[in-house]
Design a protein around this nucleic acid. Structure first.
Lengths: 338, 338
DNA sequence: CCTGGCACTCACCGGGCACGAGTGCCAGAG
DNA sequence: CTCTGGCACTCGTGCCCGGTGAGTGCCAGG
């Protein structure tokens, strides 16, 4: 096990490296931190830390930089979550309060997160299957064409066109709407398939085709993997590390364009509590030089979706985690109000 | 006026430079194109072209590269629009046909454009004010809370929460819905404010508050500048020019993050026909090293929105214009069908 | 176990130099 | 008047080279 002081040295290295973006040497360390020992001692500690794989040198005559393993230790044991200041919290709340609909909430959240963390922000829309049904609407648009609208308690609205096998009367549509809603309103979307299973049987023969078609479309809309949506922002922040540029940024941008990759990334995060994945802990190839900080958010205690940021492994973890947590909390509140 | 051959030289320079991304010299030109004259002659022509400001040399002992003015001449006089091949056209159509709703159409269009042109794609959602009303729906969610849903003929759906001053009965809501729809369905959204102006007066005193509130929200939704939405994609393509990297890419990414900037950019494009803005023709500072190719699209003959791509001034104009035009055409078709 | 001293390594920087692509100009031919 | 080949010139690029300094590892002594 590493001694107390060695951990302290690791912490100092991480902090300095995150601040300066340059390998940190023993002398600089003793000058900037009150470690109470000489550079030579620090050098020995550094050698030990390097043996354990927590830090590494880019080349022989350079200082040390933390490895993924070093950041992991830092995040788990050495650093807390830095809470937001109260002016910051007020600003977050004010900014999010101005949203007019869910798209706006998500859009504002993305911009806010990107700005606070100066990194790439990713926000998932509240999952349909994890939300509850507020209302299901059926609108006749043409004799044999109906628009299906799903509304969740989190304000998410999905619509689908349904082409019915036979023309539908206004009355039978109203009937279907009423019966459908009485069954599903207030229930979780995940339970809807079960709840409507036997619905077609209770209708007259002539309407059954329509009912089945509508229900089929409804169920399609709920398919996991398809129903997930997300928004990203702050990609311009990627240009802040001008060092290892093209090589790093290219695969990251490509990964961010792939919704599937991002959804998987967020999916891997724990449902409750904050998840930090550092460097190679991310299985996706393009993201092995980045860290992901993600957390679930929701209107109640249960998470309905996740949000987070993607940044270089060299990031301010306490600050980022603080911002992510605070934003998630306020988004949850906003959703609960709406 | 420039002689025929000099124009030919300019065309050759543009083509070679776009292909190789390197300044092109007189010798290379005569080797790669059948100009029928010697390098020395070409040099004289190049000197003339440089005097006129169509090309420039990065430094004394280098070849020439086209200026914005050179590209402008190339686009206007020397190059046509390169039509898509029929397999490409089929692929476009197939890909777009799979969309389930408008979000999906726009999302697919963005990905398609980005892939075809290997540049950043920008697609605007059909403008509300330029679309016509298919249906306006009012859903009671709570005693004094109504959800307003607008549906356009292009499949766009906008929803807003309305908090009413007094509780609303199901009946009066149905009444409002019916009267509202009878006035506006089939009309252009732009005309809606006028069409509903005197609607509150025709209601009982007790309902007027609700009616006014609903209408106010409806009108707010239609405010230009606010109602515009767009989607972008293919930002990873920015990393293809690794040359002048950080300096170029940074401001472009920043500009792309600003919806306002992009909307203005598309807004500046002509309503009909294709618009190409080259380099400094773009007023926005971050985009002076890029060109924008934009075109309107719509379900009928009138454009309901625009789409386009943003790329380096050194782009394959004929190919890009061909792709943009083709995609716009097919998106229009898809919208007309839905 | 900590410390100061010391020799060593090596990335970085700036200058000097050769190379070569590309140019402008000019005189002569068609 | 236009085109061509020749020629001197420019200047960015790549390379080598030595000096500098930050940082290291090791060791002997407290």
């Amino acid at each position: 096990m590493l001694s107390e002081r060695r951990l302290e040295v690791l912490r100092a290295i991480v902090q300095d490296y995150v601040g300066t973006e340059e390998p940190v040497g023993s002398k600089a360390l003793t000058e900037r931190h009150r470690l109470g020992v000489s550079p030579a001692t620090v050098r020995n500690d550094m050698a030990a830390l390097e043996d354990e794989g927590f830090i590494a040198q880019p080349h022989t005559s350079a200082g040390r930089i933390p490895t993924d393993k070093g950041y992991r230790l830092f995040v788990d044991k050495l650093a807390g979550v830095k809470p937001m200041s109260s002016p910051e919290r007020r600003a977050i709340q004010n900014f999010l309060d101005g949203a007019v609909d869910l798209d706006d909430v998500v859009g504002r959240t993305v911009r806010l997160l990107a700005q606070l963390t100066r990194q790439v922000a990713v926000v998932q829309y509240p999952s349909l299957t994890r939300s509850t049904v507020r209302h299901v609407e059926l609108l006749p648009l043409a004799p044999a064409r109906v628009m299906l609208v799903l509304i969740t308690d989190t304000g998410r609205v999905e619509q689908r066109m349904v082409d019915c096998p036979t023309p539908v009367t206004e009355d039978s549509l109203a009937d279907l709407r009423a019966r459908l809603n009485s069954r599903v309103v207030g229930r979780r979307f995940a339970d809807v398939p079960q709840l409507v299973q036997d619905l077609p049987e209770s209708f007259e023969q002539e309407d059954r085709g329509t009912v089945s078609t509508v229900l089929a479309t409804l169920l399609e809309t709920l398919v996991e993997e398809t129903e997930e949506r997300l928004m990203i922002g702050g990609t311009a922040n990627l240009t802040r590390f001008v060092h290892d540029f093209p090589l790093t940024i290219r695969p990251v941008l490509e990964a961010l364009e792939e919704q599937v990759v991002l959804l998987k990334l967020l999916g891997e995060a724990k449902d409750s509590g904050m998840t930090v994945r550092i460097g190679h802990e991310n299985v996706h190839e393009g993201l092995t030089a980045t860290s992901v900080v993600a957390v679930g958010y929701g209107s109640g205690d249960e998470a309905v979706a996740k949000l987070g940021v993607v940044g270089p492994t060299r990031m301010d973890y306490p600050g980022t985690m603080g911002a992510v947590r605070a934003v998630a909390r306020y988004v949850g509140q906003i959703l609960a109000e709406s």
